[in-house]
Each structure stands twice: as C-alpha cells, then as structure tokens.
Design a protein around this nucleic acid. Structure first.
Length: 948
RNA sequence: GCGGGGGUGCCCGAGCUGGUCAAAGGGGACAGGCUUAGGACCUGUUGAUGUAGGUCUACCAGGGUUCGAAUCCCUGCUCCCGCACCA
C-alpha cells in the first residue's frame, strides 16, 4: 500500500462528492466529534479521535443510512494570543517547539506572530491531514468559530439564554498578571503551572482603631485562638479600605489590592511595636497577645496568622519554641504573657486527645518549627479534622456539629456581620507570568455568569442526560455528578479570539460557552455563503431552530429549516474524557435550555487518552508523533487500523512501534490473500460475480460458518463503537480461521478444488467489506483490482446468515483439533515406540446420559444416574455410574451442542489426523479390538485413544 | 478531601450477567517447516509437574457466599484520571 494509491482514492471520493450528505428519504445518522482547537500540528492522539467517527460513519453509510459527518474549527480562546506573542518576542522555546515539533516551515514561522494566522494556518493543516487520513467528511459545512455567521449564531444563543434569565452579572477571582494587565492561564506561565486559587477567610482582629486581618482555611478555629503571630523580620504597612485601617505585610499588598477595591497605603508599621500588644477576637470578644514567629510567610494571606495551638501543629510548636527562647521572651517582655496562655480545644476527633496538635507533633517527633515533617503533620491533622472532626461542646451554638458544616456556617456568619471577608490566594508559590512578574489573584468585577446553579436548568440537563446513550455507560454517573456540582460559570473574557457579548461589547464570550450547540450550526452551515450577514438575525435562528414565527426574508429559509429538522437531533457526539466536566456537560445544559425535547442529543461517546510507548503524550514536551509523519511512514490505512485495533475508543491507547509493525504486516497479508486466491484459481477473481456452488465438505462449511460468526460479532461490536473488538473478530480471529482452513485443505488447494476457490472468494468478498470502514483506501483498491463495481464505500454492508453459523460443525472441527493435540501429548509423555493409533468414538448411550446431565444442568450425579437407569440406557450399572461421575464434571467444562456423528467425521478426516500425528490410525466403530480396554475412556466430543 | 475508573500470565490487554478459564488476541521469546537466506509466511511451545489425554498451583492481599469464583460480597493495600473559567 502506498500513499499514491491512497491519494488516488481520496481524489476520487472528492470528485464524486461521495461524502456530501443532503436530506433524502433514507434514515439519517448525524455524527459529530469535538471540533479541534488548532494551535499546533495534529498528532496521533487527534488521529484516533477523528478516525473513530469516520469508521462509524462509513460503517453506517454501508448499512444504508444517510450519514452526516461534518467538521469545523474551534479557534476562539486565549492560548493562541500567548503563542503569537511569544513568537513575536522570538521566545526560543516556542520557536523550537513550532519549528521542530509542529513542523512549521521556516518561512511561515514568523507569520505565527498573528493569532488569527495561527488558527488559519493550523486549521488548514488539519484539513489537509484529515483528507490524508481519508476521512469521509462533508466539507461543505466547514467553518471557523470566528466566522461572522457563526458569531451571529452565538449571539443568538447568548441572547436566548439571557432572555430565559440564565445569565447574570457578578464578580469572580482569576489568576492575573498586574504588569500585563491580563488574566493568565497555565499556558501563559513561566513558573507555577497547575497552581490553583484557594479561598481563605480574612478575620478582623481589632487593635486600637485598626485591624490585623489574618487569613485562614479554618474559620471555625476562631474559637480556639490563643494569640496572633507576626513576623518581626518583615515589613508591615497600614492600608486604608473604605475608611477602615488594616495592618498587613508589605508583600501581601500586591495580591490584596487586586481583590479589595481602592486599597490605599497609609504608611509603614514597625512589627516590633505590635508584639506584646493585644487584639480583640471579633467573635469571642477575648483579648489575644501578638507574639513573634519567624515561620510567618509575608507573601501568603495578609502576613499575619492567628494561632490555634490546640489544632495547628505549627502554632503549637512555635509556642513551645517561644517558651524556650529566653532571649526573645526578654526582648519583648513576654514571659508572663506566654506563661498565661491556655490552649483551647475546639474540635473532637477519634484517636486524638484534647490537643490533637500536640498528638501529631509527638507522633511525627517534631522538634522545632523548622522541622520539614511539620507540613506532613499539618496535612494529616487538617484532613482528619475536616472529614471526621466534630465541633467541641466548648464552642457556643456550633458544639456537636460536623467541622465541614460548621466551617461554612461560621464563615458566612462572620462575613455577614462584617467581622471577616473572603480572600483568595494561590495554592503554590511562586507563580510567574511569562513577562517575568508575579501573578496575583484578581477579582474581576462586572463578570457575566451562566447560571448553571439554577435548579430548573439542572433538572432539564438531568432529564436530557437520562435519555442519552453514554458510551461507556459507567461515565453516566460522572455526568450526573458534574451536573450537580456545576456552579455559575463565568462566561465572559477579556482576552482571546471570539464573539463579543451582544449586550456588553467590552466582553468576549468565553470559548467553552460558544461551543455547546454548534452541531445545529453544521446542519445549515452550507447555506451561509449565500446569505447576507445581517439577515442572520434572531428571527432567522428562532424560525429555523425553534419553529417560531417566520419574520425573515431569506427565500430558501424553509429549505434550511427542513434540513435542520432532518438532521437534528444529533445522534452521536464524540469527545475526549477530559471534556466531560465542561464541554460535554455544557452541551447537555445548553441543549436542554434552548432546544425542544425532541431535538436533545441522543448519545455521547467519550474517548480515552493517548500514550506513546507507554508514556503520556505531550506536544509541549515534544513527546508526540505528528500524524502526518505517521502517515508518511506507515500510510493512512495502517495508522487508522492501528489506532482502531489497539484499544477501544474510551480506553487509553498506546502507540507502540513494534505493534504497528504487526498491524502493517497484517494488512499486507490481506493483500496477499487476494493474490493467493488468484493463484489457486489460475485466473483473476471477479468479485462482482463469484457464482454459486453447493458445499459438501464439512471443513468448507466450517469456514463459511466461521466467516458468518465473525461478521455477526464484528457488526454487533461496531454498532456500539467497539472498534477494537470489531477488528479482533474481523481481522485477527478471522485470519486465524483462514490460516486454519487453508492448512486443513492444503492438499485440495494444490488440486485447485473449485469449492475452495469459492469459499475463499466468498470470505474475501465479505472480508473486504468488513474492513472497508477501517482501511478504506486499501479496500477500494482491492475491490477495484478484483472486479468490484463502483466504490466499496457505497457497497452494502454484508449481513450475516444465522443459518450458516453452525455450532456442530465448529464443534466437530474442535474434536479433530483436540484429538490431534491429545495424541501428540500422549506420545510425548509415554515416549515409546509404537505402530498404530486406534480411535474409539463415544458410544451412543453415553451421549444419552450426557443429554440427561445437560438437561439437569447441575452436577447432580445421583439424579443423572437415576434418570439414566430409568431410561435403561446402559446394562452395566457400574460403568454407568462411573461415567455419570465423569460427565458431571466434564459437562461444566464443555459446551453442549447436541450429538455429533463422530464416526463419520473421524473417517472423513482420517488422513489429515494420520498426517498430523505422523502415524497410521484406525477408527473403530466398536470395541472388538481393544486390548487395553481404552475404548471406555471415550466421552462425548472426546473419542478414546489407544496407542499400540 | 470530593467524584470516577482500575490492579489478570514476560509485556500490552480481553474476560468480570459465576461453570465452555491454565484464562481470547497482539507483542516478545523459543522450536520446527518453507526457503540461498530471512526482519516474510505457516505450525507449535511459552505456570509447574506427570511413561495415556491427567494432576497441582494460579487472575493485588486477606476473609466470606456457593456444589463451583479471575468473575459476586466485605476488609486492606495500591495505581490512574477530573476537580473549573482552561482548550
């Protein structure tokens, strides 16, 4: 197979518009796969993603369905902005990545400094590679999400949602670079990838007319505070917020000022002047001393911490350290204050005492606040208290409640009473923007949200999901979880490509939101080139998609509407596992909100990820195989076949060079198979007319039976996207059958037996059709070369013949194979010279007993014997009971398919068996010659053997 | 932590509505055949053991249900994935 042949067929398909799908009177199937975000070259992971729908589409097309498989480009979003900037700045890492991994030609590279050009360039590349892969896409419907008509569509969608009161305004924290003045994503970072935003509670402790505002994860521990910590080696400042004065570390100002409006610096504060002074606990009203601690990180929170030594190991050990530090105690005159501190218990957990912090300190043998084990100890205790802790009865109102619940209540109470506020901080430090400056958490005001928290909307989503087919089914509960868990989603953005929010043009629509119902857009996309942009107003979409009143002047509008109604609802939506929690769940939500129930999607298939030689694939790390390279090296059909054969779509697949080689030789074998038939026949095969012939030999019928069996299994597998199983049956197992068959009939092959030619031609003709969805180019070529008419892509999918699947024939073949195996085994064990092998088929009465045993369907020996005696099956009662015991055990190990005429079969295959075991054999119909009494050993499906 | 999915023979993996499972298929290794040769193809072997087709030990570990468990139930250990404003 070479690329020239593949190109030839791709061209022919294109010239005949083979995959352009328009409404007709056939039943339709509408398949979409997540449209790609083309910011780099396609790799084999993408190859798998897009091959699955192609195989399915081709399969369904052959079954007679009108199949629509379209493709578009999701080019909205922010990543390309950063990429373009880095190209512009000639960032070496980015240039290297795009030149060597994504294989962008040198003269194109510099043009990628324009984000629009990046997506244009790569969507073009994607299109070409998809053609090279032979995908049966209807390209007339291709679009980019920045097309003006698409923007009109998205505007309609958002206005629709707003009119349904599913959009609201609010504020929202984001990772933000103050220097670039922009929100940043992971792809914009120099350092700190994967950092998340943590929510903390600031609590206002009064001191004079000012406040210290320590931040905490555990607001419930406010009842256990003994003191505050300040780091005397750190700069502190006073800031004004709306008339209140806070004391915070200088380093925390940057972050806090992005979260608290108009935070103004008033002046510096000397921490030494604060140590030893007292603050007021806003909840309990108690006075707590301010004490020095060097472990306080000035960058985190607000640079001060409240101390809960009963439950925070760090606080506990810091207090112990201080007690033993006379120098410090003397410096600030703290001796009495520290001596007076009484540690308080606020949370009770099993297996811990009054002071859990002390327990873990002892358990981990931590000696000082600088001990590295401190973090581990803290984690352990925090987790334990959160999941299993109960608020102690010392605490008013909340005593006896679970920590996790009390925490939320206490938090909201404090915020309501203006004793506290929410702040956000990064989960790890440092996080550095590509520009080199520190990233902070900023609260974005005037943000727009989709109200996924809306219970009515959730209910619609659940109903939509309930009626959908999810493959694999296990993921359905995952979707349920996400529907429940989803909160309001910030759907507006400052940067990136995309559609502007129609009612607030300062904002762009966030790119997950603009790609939720685009499947409906495909159905009518081919008409847009002939329609003025302004005509694509809300009335147009309302009429076409929702059947509202027609206020549009577009003259083809009813045709457009009919086309939408023909293709919708979507039959299958395919996408990656990683998109379950957002794209796919949003897809359900938005269909639920906008479309009528009968237009809700019907099914989803969720894909696994790709591995490369057992390791995770990653473009940015260069651990990736570019799809076009793979096609060049192996051909599209080999790549397709490997991707489909190595794992089911929802499993992770592993690209292994060695195994691809195996697939390649398998495909070559398929080509040779055709030649082999030709050779046997002596002249070319004519697939258009392979004639009819009555098969007499069991082994010929066996081959046809196996063929139908494999076809049946493969068809059933493809119906539910099990590409691997389908190939397992149709490629590997069927090939094994053919090998077995040609081996069995090799004598007859050399005599050019016409039955064999007919069997092999039939196998070939069916086989080529089964493989056509997987390796369409090879199959077209073979089809044409061997006399097929038209495209194989247009051929009818073969239907299996249940009546030709014959279990008894399969069993007979098994008997022969097992017999040969057993003889060879015995020969090996006894290791002696011998002249002849005698074979004794199973006697009739044993078959009868077997049948009785089978009907009882339990290894109930007593019942088997009783019933057999009743029917008088055997004179020799002793022999009967011996056999009954044996068959009771045996029946559970073999499948009963009825009585088989072993004598005939054995006589027919006598020469073959004799040949295989390399010795003369004799088939006995009775036991007149049986010197060692071996004939008794015979049981159904297992003739007795005597080696003389 | 929350949610989801796993742990099978040298490797990858199927099986997991209990019996047809010493466990499919592929890869690797080994032997034989075909061949000048073979990385091509075919046949066979690839848990142990056995002078008659058998027996024993096996599907993370431990316990249980059953006439019978890789498959069902419980416990423990362990691995992977997602947890958001990012496509």
């Amino acid at each position: 197979m070479n690329r020239a042949i593949e190109k030839k067929w791709q061209k022919k398909w294109q010239e005949t518009n083979l995959f352009q799908a328009d409404p007709d009177n056939r039943e339709k199937i509408f398949v979409t796969v997540a449209y790609p975000y083309p910011s780099g070259a396609m790799h084999i992971g993408h190859g798998r993603t897009y091959t699955v729908p192609d195989v399915y589409s081709r399969f369904k097309r052959m079954q007679g369905y009108n199949v629509l498989f379209p493709m578009g480009w999701h080019v909205t979003g922010a990543p390309v902005i950063g990429i373009a900037k880095r190209i512009e700045e000639k960032n070496p890492w980015t240039l290297e990545l795009y030149e060597n991994v994504h294989k962008v030609p040198k003269d194109e590279l510099h043009k990628l400094s324009d984000p629009e050009y990046i997506v244009k360039y790569f969507s073009g590349e994607y299109h070409n590679v998809m053609d090279d892969m032979g995908y049966s896409i209807d390209w007339r419907r291709e679009f980019r999400t920045t097309d003006e008509s698409y923007k009109k569509f998205v505007e309609w969608q958002l206005r629709k949602l707003k009119s349904m009161n599913l959009v609201k305004k609010g504020k929202h924290p984001v990772k933000y670079c103050p220097k670039c003045n922009n929100p940043v994503g992971d792809h914009d970072l120099l350092e700190g990838e994967g950092a998340s935003i943590n929510e903390l509670t600031l609590i206002k402790f009064g001191i004079w007319d000012k406040f210290l505002i320590p931040a905490t994860f555990r607001p419930e521990t406010i009842y256990g505070v003994t003191n505050l910590w300040l780091n005397p080696n750190v700069k502190y400042i006073e800031v004004d917020s709306d008339g209140e004065t806070y004391i915070i570390s200088e380093k925390s100002y940057l972050n806090l000022s992005n979260q608290i409006k108009d935070l103004k610096i008033i002046g510096e504060v000397d921490p030494n002047g604060l140590i030893g002074k007292f603050v007021t606990n806003p909840i309990t009203g108690e006075k707590h001393p301010i004490l020095p601690a060097s472990f306080i990180d000035p960058e985190y929170g607000s640079g001060s911490v409240f101390s809960v030594p009963g439950h925070a190991p760090a606080d506990y050990i810091a207090l112990e350290d201080l007690k033993n530090n006379e120098e410090l105690l003397n410096k600030y005159n703290l001796e009495d204050i520290v001596a007076n501190i009484k540690i308080i218990n606020v949370v009770i957990i099993k297996r811990y005492g009054e002071l859990p912090a002390q327990d873990v300190i002892e358990k981990f043998a931590i000696k000082s606040q600088y001990d590295p084990k401190l973090e581990e100890a803290t984690n352990e205790l925090y987790k334990a208290e959160h999941s299993k802790g109960i608020i102690s009865n010392n605490v008013p109102y909340y005593g006896g409640e679970k920590v996790a619940i009390a925490r939320e209540k206490i938090k909201s109470k404090m915020i309501n009473d203006d004793h506290g506020a929410i702040m956000y901080d990064l989960s790890q430090y440092p996080v550095i923007c590509r520009c080199g400056s520190k990233v902070v958490v900023k609260i974005m005001e005037d943000q727009w949200f989709l109200r996924y928290s809306d219970e009515d909307w959730k209910e619609k989503a659940r109903e939509c999901l309930f009626n959908e087919n999810i493959i694999p089914n296990e993921l359905k509960s995952n979707f349920e979880y996400y529907i429940d868990w989803l909160e309001d989603w910030a759907c507006s953005r400052r940067i990136g490509l995309g559609t502007k929010l129609p009612w607030d043009r300062r904002w762009l629509i966030e790119p997950l939101t603009d790609s939720t119902i685009y499947m409906s857009y495909y159905t009518i996309a081919k008409y847009f080139k002939d329609i003025e942009i302004d005509e694509l107003n809300d009335d147009f979409f309302d009429y076409v998609f929702l059947g509202k009143d027609n206020n549009s002047n577009i003259h083809d509008i009813d045709k457009i509407k009919d086309e939408f109604n023909y293709w919708y609802p979507l039959d299958w939506r395919l996408s990656g596992k990683d998109l379950v929690g957002n794209h796919l769940t949003f897809h359900i939500f938005h269909h639920g909100a906008i479309f009528e129930k009968n237009d809700w999607p019907k099914g989803m298939v969720v894909f696994g990820m790709g591995l490369l030689e057992g390791r995770k694939m990653s473009s940015s790390k260069g651990n990736v195989v570019i799809l076009s390279d793979a096609i060049d090296e192996y051909s599209a059909d080999v790549v397709r076949l490997f991707l489909m054969a190595s794992a089911e779509p929802w499993q992770d697949f592993d690209w292994r060079k060695n195994e691809i080689k195996g697939i390649k030789t398998r495909l070559e074998w398929f080509f040779e198979f055709a030649d082999k038939i030709k050779q046997i026949k002596g002249h070319p095969i004519n697939l258009d007319n392979i004639g009819k012939i009555k098969l007499k030999k069991e082994i010929d019928k066996w081959m046809i039976s196996q063929l139908n069996l494999r076809l049946k299994d493969a068809t059933a597998a493809l119906e539910v996207f099990q590409t691997r199983k389908a190939l397992q049956d149709s490629l590997f197992l069927l090939k094994k059958d053919i090998d077995h068959y040609t081996y069995r009939v090799r004598e007859r092959i050399s005599k050019k037996d016409e039955h064999i030619i007919h069997v092999l031609s039939t196998v070939f003709k069916t086989w080529i059709k089964i493989l056509a969805p997987f390796t369409p180019h090879s199959c077209e070529e073979l089809w044409e070369v061997h006399g097929g008419k038209g495209f194989i892509s247009n051929e009818k999918w073969p239907t299996y013949r249940e009546d030709l699947i014959n279990e008894k024939i399969a069993k007979s073949e098994e008997i022969i194979a097992n017999l040969i195996k057993d003889i060879l085994q015995i020969k090996k064990i006894i290791n002696k010279d011998f002249n002849r092998i005698h074979i004794y088929p199973c006697e009739n009465w044993k078959w009868d007993v077997y049948k009785i045993a089978y009907e009882i369907f339990k290894p109930d020996i007593g019942q088997i014997i009783a019933k057999s005696i009743k029917k008088n099956l055997c004179e020799d009662k002793k022999e009967l009971s011996r056999f009954a015991k044996k068959i009771a055990k045996e029946m559970m190990k073999t499948k009963y398919v009825g009585k088989i005429d072993e004598i005939t079969i054995l006589n027919n295959e006598k020469d073959f068996i004799s040949n295989e075991v390399g010795c003369e054999i004799m088939i006995h119909e009775d036991n007149s010659f049986d010197p060692e009494n071996k004939s008794k050993q015979a049981i159904p499906y297992k003739p007795a053997i005597y080696i003389e």
